[in-house]
Design a protein around this nucleic acid. Structure first.
Length: 312
RNA sequence: GCGCAGGUGACGGAGUGGUCAAUCGUAGCGCGCUGUAAACGCGCCGCCUUCGGGCUACACAGGUUCGAAUCCUGUCCUGCGCA
């Protein structure tokens, strides 16, 4: 299928949290002379190491990693910024003659790159959002949704009328640009010839891995990490609206015991993993694998000159 | 072992004569998502169903009533109080 010959090849590795993406990607990158671009919305942040299960120092030494530790937790980062940063990083890797691996569990981030999503160029407007949220509180969400539909009729069946956050964002875009939100979100021709590999871990096994990972995080000093970060940046950064951080903050503020916090982390992480699966399953181009050998074979075949997947 | 308070779906916890298969929360299951995405949201959740409905249920056994998760009696069990 028709992608230009010159379209760079990209290998994306996705899967739920704790499925083994990091370890697999490091081995693949070593084997195929690659570099890794993280597609993880929390590993972006400096200092959030244990709770986000960042690659280890040894792993980072073994293979160059990009888009990890690029912001402080008080900075709000976004999909749009991510897409730009990731595309730039990938081009850099390609220019160096190496193979780019896009690795991470933040589905929207990965899709923004792989599917070349056109994200409306309207930055968040906190004042406007606050006003719209007040409007929702006063008039009800459906009234505000109606307002959106008046400006953007198509939004009636594209935007979830029951999701305040979506309604607010769509209105934000429509109001500040004067153009319909739905006309500004597009899927463009792909920038990269991508092979997407998904790690398929059976539910029971995944749950076991998640629990084990949380135990390990606790032993490695998650509480101390969160305490230190909160002391420095305050507990209310949106970066800390993340599994592990939220629960430990709750413990530090005396709302739960440590055991309770850990238990909540386990179920929240599980819920998250299930949402990730829901997301990734939608993408019919993912090659689901259970064994590393399968990944090796897929990548080897994909990288063979003239054997790209041609936009599929 | 006399007193009091209770025993409701996996758990927590509403309901106190009909409109109750039983509000709600949690867990569980399914799903969605284009500048907060580890975020945000939606659906299902006794059993069966040709999706109209059918069946069995609110500790157990009786009873009152046209009608009971809701009232009465007894039994068993639990918690606090007094022995």
């Amino acid at each position: 299928m028709g992608l230009p010959e010159t379209t760079p090849k990209l290998i994306a590795i996705v899967g739920p949290t704790a499925s083994g993406k990091t370890a697999l990607s490091v081995r693949l990158a070593e084997r195929f002379d690659g570099e890794i671009v993280s597609a993880d919305s929390r590993q972006i942040y400096r200092g959030m190491d244990i709770g986000t299960a960042k690659p280890t120092a040894a792993e980072i030494r073994a293979v160059p990693h990009h888009l990890i530790d690029i912001k402080d937790p008080d900075v709000d980062y976004t999909v749009a910024a991510y897409k730009a940063d990731a595309v730039a990083a990938i081009h850099g890797i390609v220019a160096r003659g190496r193979v780019p691996f896009l690795v991470g569990g933040t589905g929207l981030y990965a899709d923004a790159v792989v599917q070349n999503l056109d994200i409306p160029r309207v930055p968040a407007d906190p004042a406007l959002r606050t006003r719209l949220e007040a409007e929702i509180a006063r008039d009800g969400l459906s009234a505000v949704f109606d307002r959106l539909v008046a400006l953007d009729p198509e939004a009636a069946y594209v935007v979830d009328p029951k999701n305040p956050r979506r309604v607010v964002r769509a209105l934000e875009v429509a109001l500040t640009t004067g153009l319909p939100f739905t006309a500004q979100r597009k899927k463009n021709p792909p920038l990269f010839d991508a092979l997407t590999i998904g790690l398929d871990v059976p539910p029971d096994a995944l749950r076991t891995r998640i629990d084990a990972r949380i135990d390990a995080m606790m032993k490695e000093g998650l509480v101390h990490e969160v305490e230190t970060l909160a002391a420095r940046w305050g507990a209310s950064c949106s970066a800390f609206d993340a599994i592990g951080y939220r629960e430990i903050i709750g413990y530090l503020e005396g709302r739960t015991t440590l055991d309770e916090a850990a238990a909540i982390m386990r179920t929240n992480t599980w819920h998250y993993a299930k949402r990730q699966m829901t997301w990734f399953k939608q993408n019919k181009n993912v090659h689901w694998i259970r064994e590393e050998d399968e990944a090796n074979a897929l990548v080897e075949e994909f990288l063979r000159p003239g054997r790209g997947k041609g936009g599929r």
